[in-house]
Write a protein that binds this DNA or RNA. Sequence first.
DNA 1: ACCTGAACACCGTTCAAGT
DNA 2: ACCTGAACACCGTTCAAGT
Lengths: 237, 237
Amino acid sequence: MAARTHRPRRRTEALSRERITEAAVELLDTAGESGLTFRALTERLATGAGAIYWHVANKGELLRAATDAVIVTALATPPAGAAPRDRVRAVALGLFDAVEAHPWVAAQLSALPYQSTAPRIFESVGQQVKALGVPEEHWFATASALVEYILGAAGQNAANTATARALGPAPDRGEILGSVARAWEGLDAEEYPFTRAVGDQLRAHDDREQFLAGIDLILAGVTALHLQDGPRTPREH
Amino acid sequence: MAARTHRPRRRTEALSRERITEAAVELLDTAGESGLTFRALTERLATGAGAIYWHVANKGELLRAATDAVIVTALATPPAGAAPRDRVRAVALGLFDAVEAHPWVAAQLSALPYQSTAPRIFESVGQQVKALGVPEEHWFATASALVEYILGAAGQNAANTATARALGPAPDRGEILGSVARAWEGLDAEEYPFTRAVGDQLRAHDDREQFLAGIDLILAGVTALHLQDGPRTPREH
DNA sequence: ACCTGAACACCGTTCAAGT
DNA sequence: ACCTGAACACCGTTCAAGT
């Protein structure tokens, strides 16, 4: 913009881990997991393969960095002020939406274990568990259960979205659920009585709402099992 | 064994989808996800690549078939007799153990959506939800929450196991948890107070027990929210 | 210190040719 | 109908050579 800047021009901007990660996220978002190749990256960054390897050890590290970037953004604004219960919902929903927007992170998150990115999620959820007033001896188990549910639900949702996208461009929620519902209708009625019976509920449900209903189920369990006679929330002041 | 059998000899046994899937599962179990290649398969089956493609469309279909085989086995013996609540636990634990034994299925299960293998899991869990006496309008949401938790928890556990295996051969549970706990101790105390605080609980916990504790949390929530004034279980006779 | 780009090993998939 | 195996296109990674 200003002519006097000392910054390097756009076209020759130095390569960096950040720029590479940013380009990787964009490629993953637009072309899916198979779209992230070093050739596509070198083209987009107008450089050679060796230049990328100077900044990043290998493809696995690049995928981890991309996943971490998405999750850090999703957890960036900690939910403040609201009741602990609503803060749990807010953190969970933030993660759910991030995975929905970047379906490829689901596979990454369940590939990595309690390392790199996972502790960020665990910490965010855990702090809300503590705020709920859960007794300390149940902190780990409660936070784990919530994180596992969140990752599982977000992953299933991402898979559905990704599959629907593969069928056609930019499908809306109705189309996605419709295609799954049609698949269910093709199931054998003898073998799948329950699944067939809830086909209408599948069609009618709202993903985000139902995700939160699952969170509420766990929170109700926490209340019943761990908050019975303790205070519901710690004193606020 | 018997000399009179009319069956073809081992070495020339005809290729089939079943034999190919079986070999794929073995390769995945012993060499991990990257160990399943068409070259390794052709060698193991003493055939050419084209022969495999005659029976299987592509690698994706092969992975789906392998996943389906594992899950079908895991769900083969339906838990009978016990109380609905214990049957939920039994189905869940069967899946948990299957994913632990075949860590590569975790990634597959979250890649596929409500198709092929997933409905089997949904149906098995759903039938127990129905048996619990959950009102019909909550069947879909309740079964979904349970399945999502099961897949999420099994996936996280599989990732931990796989990572530990990568570090050394045949690590026991203590080693696995120890390596994760050490990673947690390296985290910044300011940024990860909760995670650091529960490091000892991580070390001490039992995976399967805690997995079931998560199931119990959800079941307690189901009781609190959906079984309040209804019967706990349907009449048995 | 950082980047270039050709080269290498390996992989999924195809296909003309066999039986 | 089923199998063989060479060939093709593509990918992650390396590395000698440049600046």
